[in-house]
Design a protein around this nucleic acid. Structure first.
Lengths: 203, 203
DNA sequence: AATGGGTCGACTTTTTTGTTCGAAAATAGT
DNA sequence: ACTATTTTCGAACAAAAAAGTCGACCCATT
């Protein structure tokens, strides 16, 4: 297995790497990306600033690793739901609710987006398309199950999955800017789901 | 009335000044003094960064104004209690509880202290002596009431007031560093009060 | 004692930040 | 309409803080 990553690998190494990610995660959540310095992270770990560069090429790479870690957390939760035996409609609902709830927990996601408002867009939007693909895959599975059990009726499943993934992504904005409480938002989600369902469910 | 302050005064002026203080208060509470930039404050107000300097000489002066504003809040609450008809012992207890509760609410106070750990000490300690004097005055009133109603027995009231003020100040540390929850701390306060009472109350 | 992963301090380079200043807007006064 | 005053801001800059680099040091293991 060649190590395509930029940093070395070893016993202690991976441990330290995840420690850094953990520390950075908390700091990013507290202060946001911009306001967290390399030294903040180093101090939290009681290490020298330069040691961080042994594990990560630069600050942005740490940020990326944090986001990826949060992403993993989200998708592990979503996968769990997708792989549970459940009525398609129920599964779909659970999927969306869980998705939104978890994202709400992902402080970093939020803080990151907030920072982005003031600084750089490019890298985060790159990320978005990546997650949308993953989501589309999960949604595809749900939709397939639903159609084969004759609950759903979808012409082009992959397309529908992408469309829904995009829609869900779009719903993040209002959620994260917390115009609504999550409870209020739940109502809106259910409304949206209702609309989706009556478009999807065979009558 | 001559304006000894550094900034001009006018109708809109005071309004803007307090707007700045409000905005800065929130940002300081969120990020702490160091991590809040002049631009952050300006953006929050949708004003140009340089406009702030029309109202305040510099960042530290804004910070000072914020702290003063919080101080006002604290002392308005304390004054309220001191000017309420109440049994001296009860009043004293209420005073201390309210004092500690309010201080706990004063995020800026806390955040400021936390920043101080990493940067400058001098100005905040200057502030401390100022508030201690104010506190001593309030405590003096309580003690006087208590003695004239024959509930308390104090030799040198002003001295006792200063001593108690100092003691209360000292209790802030453990409270703010939140080694204890406030509920736990309340017990400690009551213990301390008990000790104080049995030293003060005539037997 | 030689290798190499891991650490750090000191240094350089790059960005950010606080602050100033003069000139434009806006506003009030005449 | 004209003038004075208050309020706003953009551009510029010095100082501070940040990111990032590098060679020297550990300290295990071999």
């Amino acid at each position: 297995m060649s190590n395509l990553g930029s940093s070395p690998s070893g016993a202690q190494n991976d441990n330290m790497r995840s420690s850094i990610i953990e520390a950075a995660k908390e700091l990013f959540a507290k202060f946001g990306y911009k306001k967290t310095t390399m030294e903040d992270i180093a101090i939290a770990l009681r290490k020298g600033k330069s040691s961080l560069y042994y594990y990560f090429k630069n600050k942005e790479e740490i940020f990326q690793a944090v986001i990826e870690s949060e992403e993993k957390h989200l998708f592990s939760k979503l996968n769990e739901i997708v792989n549970t035996k459940m009525e398609p409609r129920e599964k779909f609902t659970q999927y969306v609710i869980t998705r939104m709830e978890t994202i709400l927990e992902l402080d970093n996601y939020i803080k990151a987006l907030k920072d982005e408002m003031l600084t750089n867009y490019e890298f985060l939007s790159r990320l978005k398309t990546s997650t949308e693909k993953q989501e589309a895959a999960l949604l595809t599975k749900i939709l397939e199950e639903g159609t084969s059990s004759n609950t759903f009726q979808v012409k082009n499943i992959p397309m529908a999955a992408v469309a829904i993934a995009t829609a869900l992504k779009g719903m993040e904005g209002p959620l994260l800017s917390s115009y609504y409480s999550f409870e209020d938002f739940k109502v809106q989600i259910e409304n949206t789901l209702n609309i989706l369902f009556f478009g999807l469910i065979r009558r």
